[in-house]
Amino acid sequence: MSNASASERETFIGPDGPWWKLDVAELWRYRDLVWLLVRRDITAVYKQTVLGPLWHVVQPLLTSFMFALIFGRAAGFAPKEIPGMLFYLSGLVPWFFFANVVNKTSKTFTANAALMGKVYFPRLAVPLSVAISNLASFGIQFFAFLVLLIGYHVFDPAFTWSPSPALLLLPVLVVIMGLLGLGAGILISALTTKYRDLSFLVGFGVQLLMYASPVIFPLSRLQNFPMLLTLFNVNPMTSVIESMRAVFFGQPIPWGGLGYTCVFTLCILMLGTAVFNKVERSFADIV
């Protein structure tokens, strides 16, 4: 930022703003802040811990192991041709990414009330940084999944894996998940400033939503339950998780579902930003 353009800048503070506004230029000016918040999230959490960043992998690995034992072996929900660990990890890693982004961004205002009550910066920097730092932990977990995938390929004679061109869809899936979680998170964060009830709901609400997604069993098992199938398809994460598995285990990609999820994501992002804008202007008086 050169001094000339800085001194020409004029701040206008008035009672009413537009109902929808996304000041990308301002966010860009504060990109160092976003980056520092990301680093703070990643490093501060693991100071004074023994395992450090390994904690990122422990949760999905242990959960996958339990799911593989109970839902896979005992209940027989997982498809036979994919090892249980791989099946559940491929569903849980994206699910945890989405769930963490929603959970953590939804605390934007309540967790940073002291900071936001004292200094101005584009408030969206906080949820954005949360989404990015969760992207980092998703990366670590995803790497663990890849290691396991190759491990099974090499050591398990019953399972062979060959990469398909559909893998190119992966980055798109990651972006969709991140934006979906961000949109839902900022919408909830804006609403929780007024209705504290929601903060209780979010934690287990997201957990319950997992049972309406194909994390535990593939959507194909619901063919005889049209009601449930519809319910699952309403959940925008369903198509993402199905696609995630399709990409790795060579099944058809649910394009229709992905289209629905994209539209849903755009809508919730628009709505989330609108409500967020409205709240950030007055939240200091409410919280």
Binding site: S7, G17, R281
Partner: peptide
């Protein structure tokens, strides 16, 4: 002036880069 909350009516215009130290 620090843009922490907005006025009920009226306007404030500030020229140039602004920093506020409330704490």
């Amino acid at each position: 002036m620090s843009r922490i909350t907005s006025p009920t009516s009226g306007t404030i215009r500030i020229k140039g880069r602004t920093s506020s130290l409330l704490e």
